[in-house]
């Protein structure tokens, strides 16, 4: 048994161990209804992390996800009355477009993704402030309920929000494993030069990966906005760290090529359990960020593939 062999199994073992520990300390954790509401709470974060997975899977990063989600909460709130449920299309498109721009800047202008997405994030923030007039907006309750009220129902005990998350996971999983795009993603993440030498359109693959990340961030923003019935240029703040943590503790390393969307599902659950544990241990919300920062560092250190860094780490 060596470390490399068990590495891929780390995430679910961690999850299992955490669930056992938290459950043992607080049996109420296993209460199905409470557990279900915990899972449902984490849906917007999960959707954002799902998109982030694509960016990290190709060896990049998307630091704009949080700002895109912020922007979308505003877009959703502002245009809900005008377009009804059709606003969802606008939200996804807006996210997709911002992501595609980040991808374009990264691949065609040779700006590293951590800078390009950071910059695009601020452009999104600017747009959000413009649309919201720098105020916290709220949705008209009747309008929200007509268009998106179904989200709060459940069928056969499964909340519809959770159903959305599962559907998106299935979609992302299909994209990753069953399509030629997914295969190209893996090639770019594992060996970009070989992908180029096989005649793949690497730029297009990368742009699309960032665009998908943006689109998922858009969906996350929309769901969040509907949940809170409002929009604000700072509404989704705090999501970015958790989304990155979810992807990395799930076992998709910063160096890309390994892991994937199922890993992110596990990672999100780990984040959820840690959060639940902190509530139980009465660690306040203010202290959680510090804990997650440390978790992030540990997760990166454990998952990163040093052989891919070619000696120089900048």
């Amino acid at each position: 048994m060596n470390l490399e062999r068990i590495k891929p199994h780390f995430p679910w073992m961690t999850l299992l161990a955490l669930v056992c520990v938290v459950g043992a300390a607080n049996p109420a954790f296993f209460d199905p209804l409470g557990f279900l509401s915990l899972v449902t709470d984490v849906v917007p974060l999960f959707i954002m992390a799902l998109g982030m997975t694509f960016a990290i899977y190709i060896g990049g990063i998307d630091l704009s996800a949080q700002q895109v989600a912020n922007m979308v909460t505003v877009v959703a709130t502002v245009y809900l009355s005008q377009f009804g449920i059709g606003v969802a299309v606008i939200c996804v498109l807006a996210g997709f477009l911002f992501g595609a721009m980040s991808g374009f800047v990264t691949t065609r202008l040779y700006v590293p993704s951590f800078v390009s997405t950071l910059a695009m994030g601020f452009i999104a923030l600017s747009a959000a402030k413009y649309l919201s007039g720098q105020r916290a907006l709220s949705m008209d309750v009747t309008e929200r309920n007509t268009s998106f009220g179904w989200m709060f129902d459940s069928t056969a005990g499964v909340p519809h929000q959770l159903a959305i998350a599962i559907a998106l996971l299935a979609f992302a999983w299909f994209l990753q494993t069953r399509t030629s795009f997914g295969r190209a993603l893996k090639a770019v993440g594992s060996g970009e030069l070989a992908a180029v030498a096989s005649g793949l359109n690497v730029d297009r693959v990368k742009i699309l990966a960032f665009a998908i990340s943006g689109a998922f961030a858009g969906i996350a923003g929309l769901v969040f906005s509907v949940k809170l019935s409002g929009g604000d240029a700072n509404l989704a703040n705090g999501f970015l760290l958790l989304a990155i943590v979810a992807v990395l503790v799930g076992g998709t390393p910063l160096t890309g090529g390994v892991g994937g969307v199922i890993n992110t599902a596990i990672g999100t659950l780990i984040v959820m359990v840690i959060r639940a544990a902190m509530v139980y241990l009465e660690i306040s919300a203010t202290q959680q960020q510090m804990v997650f920062g440390v978790v992030l560092i540990i997760a990166i250190a454990l998952t990163i593939d040093c052989s891919k860094l070619s000696g120089v780490v900048k």
Partner: peptide, 27 residues
């Protein structure tokens, strides 16, 4: 130290440290 000894790219190491710092200040 985190960046060099754990071989984590600096943008990520420092981003995480930034989160830790903000959290610490809040604490």
């Amino acid at each position: 130290m985190i960046h060099v000894r754990l071989k984590i790219p600096s943008f990520m190491a420092s981003l995480a440290m930034g989160f830790v710092g903000t959290g610490l200040a809040l604490l």
